[in-house]
């Protein structure tokens, strides 16, 4: 069964629509909200993982777009420019899921891809601008 992560952008007037309800009830999909920032009257963003059979998968995505939501494939990795990185470790301070950590012994930067939710906190925090999302 296909499983994909999408980066959804909600226009301000659509921010309160119960879209996950429709994905489940009308399209038999399993939506999993990994991260969301939704407030009435403001542009919202959601990192949504969707699992389901191929046919309803495409229909579900079409439904989201029809609702005025911008659907883009989500980042699937982060890229570190090792020449620019100075191993300061500031990215590890803002990584809530604990995907980026420092080795207490060697001071090396460790990345656990399975824990990353591509929230971009490290991208913004990196004082060397050495981290980018890749798709």
């Amino acid at each position: 069964m296909p499983r994909k992560r999408f980066d959804l952008t909600f226009p301000p007037n659509q921010a309160t629509k119960p879209i996950t309800y429709h994905l489940v009830k009308d399209y038999d999909l399993t939506p999993n909200i990994l991260r969301a920032q939704i407030q009435p009257g403001q542009e919202g963003r959601m990192l949504l993982e969707i699992t389901g059979p191929k046919e309803s998968f495409d229909a579900g995505v079409a439904f989201l777009e029809q609702e005025g939501i911008t659907v883009q494939p989500a980042a699937t990795d982060i890229k570190l420019d090792e020449d620019a990185c100075v191993l300061c470790g500031l990215c590890t301070a803002v990584c809530r899921p604990g995907a980026l950590t420092m080795s207490a012994e060697t001071g090396a930067l460790l990345f656990d891809k399975d824990k990353c939710v591509y929230c971009e906190a490290c991208v913004v925090a990196c004082p060397r601008r050495a981290i980018t999302l890749s798709f």
Binding site: V86, L87, C88, G89, L90, C91, T92, A93, V94, C95, R96, G98, M102, T106, G107, A108, P127
Partner: peptide
């Protein structure tokens, strides 16, 4: 509380 450094220990070494 999770901690993160700003001063690079690798470079200090």
């Amino acid at each position: 509380v999770q901690t993160g450094p700003i001063s690079s220990i690798a470079k200090a070494r």
